[in-house]
Design a protein around this nucleic acid. Structure first.
Lengths: 351, 351
DNA sequence: CTGAAAGCGCTTACAG
DNA sequence: CTGAAAGCGCTTACAG
């Protein structure tokens, strides 16, 4: 038999209400009784049933995480960040991979059953409509890193900022003939990233010809094929920005096969900072998406919404950073040494 | 106001008990009333509150997943497998990273509060004692891939089998002078794997000298250092088995720096089949640990325990498989062609 | 086949 | 400062 609040009350010679007060650290309890009750709880190892507490309070202390696939390369880092902030307030993350058809239905019924207090939707490709319905019914929902097609509160990477950083680094390395491999054009972030990249290049002496920008599907093979297209078109480039690390890995393979040295002849910068970036050869310099921070920001936003806060009208945008590894030349950042390895032409505009 | 079972009962003109019967698909309900109630539930979009159901039934339909770190490279695959089998029975996975000190306490109190019906403990390094306590108190616990130091029900990789497969493949490739980099010796699996590797080599003409076996800490850098030790000792080897993909990646780096071609001069086989294995150069041939299957098996075992089944005395052992990529030579498996690239000496014993 | 009642284990006004 | 009672929304014997 499980120890219940009634048992503790009996043993302490008080009512359940008083035990409940002690449990919830209410101030209006006589110190002596408080002590006594607490002692008994400690002795018996009493822990209140979460079911009962949840039912009585009408909440769960759990967040539903909706994701197409648990094996998404950056999901672990994102959840790590989310879990960290959730744990501090005693919340738990409940996993709901909805990749296959049945996943969504199960998730939806759990949501309707109020199994969780809020929903963290990671890249909800085709379920935004349904999520909006849930949201309208009052279930707090936060979307991570999706296009802003929906009106749902969201947290996203600043892809334009990422593009700018990539450009900046290539300029610092003195690379002026640039090429870019983008992700699928239907994804909003792709245009943003390309725009940021292009903008930073303006008035620098660097060039990114339209013919040197090609699209790929996000996979390693896609990146390989895209890089081969660039190489076969005999387009000269000494700097390549790839909007996705998996594609960048494929591009490295194509460059290697073509006999182009990296970073000597071509400097390569990826995007995402997936775990794989540390294992390519050379290791991949890349624009880091702040995955744990995204998760943390989403978690906090969700907690705010659960707490009754109004949804922000604009997506929360998080800046990127650059992780320098082996596919770009080491550039000394000491003033005056910047252009050491540069071509001699002015690579840097005044900012 | 949330629709409750009382609302449905009123609308249908029946008692709550009858609605509950319909809800739980009990056979003893008049088809007509059953129809009517179901219709009303559909119209109102009624979904029973999970809190109330859980409290009344004394269960949760959630499993607690205890893990040191969410970012463990193979965790995603493992959870994918577990989630798949859990979802079919309507169970949910609740994440509990307990890496930092506070993690365990939160987890333990959740467990005590019966927030979940069972515990899936992934590599519970230093919490086995506490888990055993929980287990003794009647909480179903299944451990994944830990040393069998504890008496807890567990599911684990057959590392000896993995070692054998690695040996087999190197023999098929005609490699006879072998070396091995193991993980930390205090991990039980390390000895098992080495034993399997050694056993398969017996009576084959292949040699694995004691001096050619070295230990590393599991990291890329550790593998790099270990491979360098082997190289500097001027020990000749044409086949290298590394008990861990991250270490194998480090070994590849060391071999490359030393100018040894892979797989030409040295064939390399890793262990785990982490995502990174597809991104090294050359891509890494490796002994695959069946992560999703491990997760699935653990989930099923846990469900059995929750269902009241007795705990198996022996760990459930799952076999490995070999994933051939670029660090070992392609070996035609057509009879008679096996030794094409072999040295000419008998590499294969009769099995 | 169906209903009234008690119970799951808490919390929360309302009195005192 | 404390207790009796009602309520959270279900399920489950027990009657009929």
């Amino acid at each position: 038999m499980r120890t219940t609040i009634a048992d503790i009350a009996r043993m302490a010679g008080v009512s359940k209400a008083t035990v409940s007060r002690v449990l919830n650290a209410r101030p209006d309890v006589d110190p002596a009784t408080q002590q006594r009750v607490q002692q008994i709880m400690a002795d018996t190892g009493y822990v209140p049933s979460s079911h009962a507490v949840d039912l009585a309070r009408g909440r769960t202390r759990a967040l539903g995480v909706l994701t197409p696939d648990l094996r998404t390369p950056w999901l672990a880092e994102l959840l790590h960040g989310a879990a960290e902030t959730m744990q501090t307030v005693g919340y738990t993350l409940s996993l709901h991979p909805a990749g296959d058809g049945t996943g969504w239905d199960r998730f939806a019924s759990r949501a309707a059953a109020q199994s969780f207090d809020g929903i963290l939707a990671v890249c909800p490709a085709d379920t935004t409509a349904e999520l909006e319905q849930l949201s309208e019914r009052g279930v707090p929902v936060v979307v991570v890193d999706a296009g802003s097609g929906s009106g749902l509160p969201s947290v996203a990477t600043d892809h334009a900022d990422g593009g700018r950083r990539a450009a900046e680094h290539l300029l610092l390395a003195g690379r002026l003939k640039l090429a870019m491999i983008t992700g699928p054009a239907d994804h909003e972030a792709v245009a943003e990233c390309a725009a940021g990249f292009g903008d930073r290049l303006a008035d620098t002496g660097a060039v990114l010809r339209a013919s040197c920008v090609t699209e790929a599907d996000g996979t390693e093979q896609g990146g390989y094929d895209a890089a081969q297209r660039l190489l076969r078109a005999r387009l000269f480039f000494d700097g390549l920005f790839v909007h996705g690390d998996a594609m960048a890995a494929g591009a490295l393979r194509a460059l290697r096969e073509a006999g182009r040295s990296v970073p000597g002849e071509v400097a390569v910068i990826g995007f995402d900072d997936l775990p794989l970036a540390a294992f390519t050869h050379p290791t991949l310099t890349t624009v880091r998406v702040p995955w744990p921070e995204l998760g943390g920001a989403a978690a906090r936003l969700l907690l705010d919404l659960i707490g009754g806060a109004a949804a922000p009208r604009q997506p929360v945008r998080l800046a990127t950073s650059l992780v320098v590894r082996g596919t770009t030349p080491q550039v000394a950042r000491i003033p005056g040494q910047r252009s050491r390895r540069a071509t001699g032409r002015p690579a840097l505009p005044r900012t």
